[in-house]
């Protein structure tokens, strides 16, 4: 780990927001872990002073002894609090894209490559979840966060913290990963018929592959649908051929930004709905938004490409 400059070291945000976002794994060590008494911890300090007063007033050595024992326990607990987090390694995982308004889940991997078992390590982003870790074990947690806007959604500071063992101290480590997830526009929630677009014909040129009229055969190309393989020709040992259809103009669907109405976000929502519907109905569709033109195609990859284009528009 590279060293921090003195100015950065005492930057206030380091204690709560964390250091600059990183890609790689972060090991929790003395630089990352902060410890302060919790509310019950401050209560415990008051208790110690009260007991000290009682011992003093009654000049009672055993009461002193108990007071000192509790004070020592308080002190020793600082080290145990540190031990509850130190040596853990956290790493960012994958995060699946979601539609705006859904919960995005950031995956975080935690490795405990030490002989110390960890009890109730808590991770919080928007909500908090806790886990126990056996010695030499790994875990994977998914931190949920609400999304409202399409586009890249960056994870905030993830705080890894623990009150273990006595709850007198909160040991915490604010972590920032380059953790982002793609948020697609929220699909239009009202019924919306697919556009009967004709405009595509003029623009699309010669790539009019459809499913209606048989137009001929072509040698196999990766990604061709299994249904379109010319099995009879294959049986006749003519090689793997793919049947070509020329679709009617109506069946070649163009999802055009210009054909939607409303605000930008509304339009993108509507397009999103169309993409989902078109894919579900097995249509071949292209997408046109200002500045982006995705030629008609179908399949999961195509759909994701379209959704990504909408998300980042």
């Amino acid at each position: 780990m590279n060293s921090l400059s003195l100015k950065d070291r005492f930057r206030f945000s380091r204690f709560f927001r964390g250091e600059k976002p990183v890609d790689g794994p972060i090991e929790l060590n003395q630089r990352r872990i902060f410890i302060l008494p919790s509310a019950p911890g401050f209560g415990f300090v008051i208790l110690i002073f009260l007991l000290l007063l009682i011992s003093f007033v009654y000049n009672n050595n055993l009461a002193y002894l108990l007071t000192f024992l509790l004070a020592s326990i308080f002190f020793v607990t600082i080290l145990h609090s540190y031990q509850s987090l130190s040596g853990l390694v956290l790493q960012q995982g994958h995060s699946a894209p979601v539609f705006a308004g859904e919960d995005a889940a950031f995956e975080v991997l935690i490795y405990n490559q030490t002989a110390t078992a960890r009890t109730q390590v808590q991770l919080s982003l928007e909500s908090t979840l806790s886990l126990d870790m056996a010695p030499f074990s790994n875990s994977q947690v998914r931190l949920q966060t609400r999304t409202s806007q399409r586009g890249w959604h960056y994870a905030n500071t993830i705080t890894c913290f623990s009150f273990y063992p006595l709850g007198l101290f909160r040991a915490w480590s604010p972590l920032r990963f380059n953790l982002k997830t793609l948020v697609y526009p929220k699909p239009w929630q009202y019924p919306l018929p697919l556009p009967q677009t004709l405009s595509g014909a003029a623009i699309s040129g010669n790539t009019k592959r459809g499913v209606d009229d048989f137009a001929g055969v072509q040698t196999y190309y990766p990604g061709a649908s299994i249904k379109s393989i010319h099995w009879k020709a294959f049986a006749k040992q003519q090689g793997l051929l793919v049947k070509q259809y020329s679709g009617t103009q109506g069946s070649e669907l163009w999802l055009d930004y210009e054909e939607t109405s409303g605000s930008v976000e509304d339009r993108l929502s509507q397009l999103c709905r169309w993409v989902l519907d078109a894919e579900q109905q097995g249509l071949i569709y292209g997408l046109t938004v200002p500045g982006i033109r995705l030629p008609p195609d179908h399949g999961k990859t195509h759909q994701l490409k379209c959704l990504e284009a909408l998300a980042l528009f």
């Binding site: 109730q120 806790s130 273990y164 063992p165 709850g167």
Partner: peptide
């Protein structure tokens, strides 16, 4: 007190 701060 330890128990309060444990999951089980």
């Amino acid at each position: 007190m330890v128990m309060i701060n444990s999951r089980h």
